[in-house]
Amino acid sequence: MNKNNEEEEKKKKQEKVDQEIDGSDQQQDGTKTKSHGEILKQQIIEGCETYDRSWSSILLSSFTAGLEIGFSFLMLATLHHFASGYFAEEVVFKLMAFVYPLGFILVIMGQSILFTEQTSLLTLPVLSNKRSLGSLFRIWGLVILGNLVGGLLIALTLVWVGPKLAIFTELDIEKIGLHMVEYEVFTILVSAILAGWLMGLLSWLVTSSKETVGEIIVIYLITALMGFTGLHHSIIGNIEIFSAMLVSPEITILEYIQTLVVILAGNAIGAVFFVALLKYRAFVFNVKMP
């Protein structure tokens, strides 16, 4: 009997939460900041819209994102090549943070599906009982597959064309890749969790923005922070490490796969726990039952 009462209470609580979210209408005054409920409502709606897309559309959009984020790697390698003669190596890697956001801006503003930017967004419909956990894992699988395949293709292209155009060398590619894998597994995991956390916040803040310029500034600041601190991002990291593996014997395929899996796991944990779960539960705890 107690179990039935608990289930009934949970059902009533969820219905009340849904009512509060659905009642979170956008402010008429465009100068006012969106409320927590408004952002949450929009994120859930956008997440559900992604679930409702065909698998071929999701796969193609995520494949496109994997290609487009490669332009960040193009700029990283080019800047590394031309700045290395003027600055110390550690300074060059800090300067690279200023061009790191380019691919992210192209992907997010172009509405392509990027795993880390969509991780918390796709989790919210599950937390609000609008989609199942199984459907979440299926859509994650499609997005990751598309992102990685697109990244591998652009990596193959850039590794060939960069030296041909003399904008960077294989040595530049190797140094960037080694910079990603030179840490212990646990260090990479924690770094990836922080990166996933930031990407989840990026998604939340982009939704809260009212203008395109504001969205671009948010994307630039957060991804530049990731680049400056060297946090591990799975999708561009896939390109960096795979490219280095192609030109350097110091990175094995086993090391590439292991590092990529750890980063993917860390990114997912950071976005799901520190953004989706905490933001959603903070709203739920504020809902008062009559």
Rank of each mutant, 00 (worst) to 15 (best):
W204I: 05
K12M: 10
M289P: 04
V272F: 09
A88C: 05
I239T: 04
G141T: 11
S209M: 13
T119F: 02
S35R: 08
A268N: 07
E174G: 09
K175P: 01
E68S: 10
L205V: 02
M1T: 10
G266Q: 02
I188C: 01
W55M: 10
F115E: 03
T259P: 03
V272Y: 05
M96W: 03
E117V: 02
L277G: 02
N267K: 11
I263A: 00
T223N: 14
E68V: 06
T123A: 15
I105Q: 08
K16N: 10
L221C: 14
T116A: 05
G23P: 03
V159I: 03
G103K: 00
F186A: 06
N286V: 02
Q111I: 02
S61C: 07
T123N: 08
H80E: 15
V287G: 08
L79T: 12
F274H: 09
T212K: 08
L145P: 09
S24V: 00
E68F: 15
L133Q: 08
L74S: 04
L189Q: 04
Q258D: 11
I45N: 12
K130M: 11
V99A: 11
A77W: 05
I45W: 03
A224H: 14
I217A: 13
T223P: 09
N2M: 12
I39G: 00
A65N: 12
A65R: 12
K13D: 06
M109L: 12
I69D: 11
V206N: 02
V272G: 04
Y51A: 10
N4I: 08
L221H: 05
R138W: 07
L59C: 11
L165N: 10
A155P: 09
T187H: 09
V91H: 13
H233Q: 11
F71H: 10
Y280L: 01
N5S: 10
P163R: 00
V159T: 13
Y256N: 04
L136P: 07
L198V: 11
F73P: 13
Q43G: 06
M109P: 00
E117L: 04
L95S: 09
M180H: 11
L122H: 03
M96R: 01
L246S: 08
L198D: 07
I257G: 00
G150K: 14
Y280R: 01
K34D: 07
Y220N: 02
S72L: 05
M226I: 15
I188H: 00
G196V: 04
H233F: 05
I44P: 03
E7Q: 09
E49K: 12
F104H: 11
A265D: 10
G110R: 13
F137W: 11
K16P: 08
R138T: 12
A88S: 14
F115M: 13
V181K: 00
I241K: 03
L225H: 06
I241F: 01
Q28Y: 08
E8A: 01
F186C: 02
S35N: 05
F93C: 06
F186Q: 06
I219N: 05
V284I: 05
I236A: 04
S72K: 01
E174M: 10
A83V: 08
S61G: 07
D172L: 05
L60S: 14
Q14L: 15
F228L: 15
L201Q: 08
E9H: 01
D172T: 03
L60T: 14
L124F: 05
I39T: 09
N238A: 03
I108M: 09
S120G: 09
I58A: 11
T33E: 15
G150E: 11
P163S: 06
L152I: 12
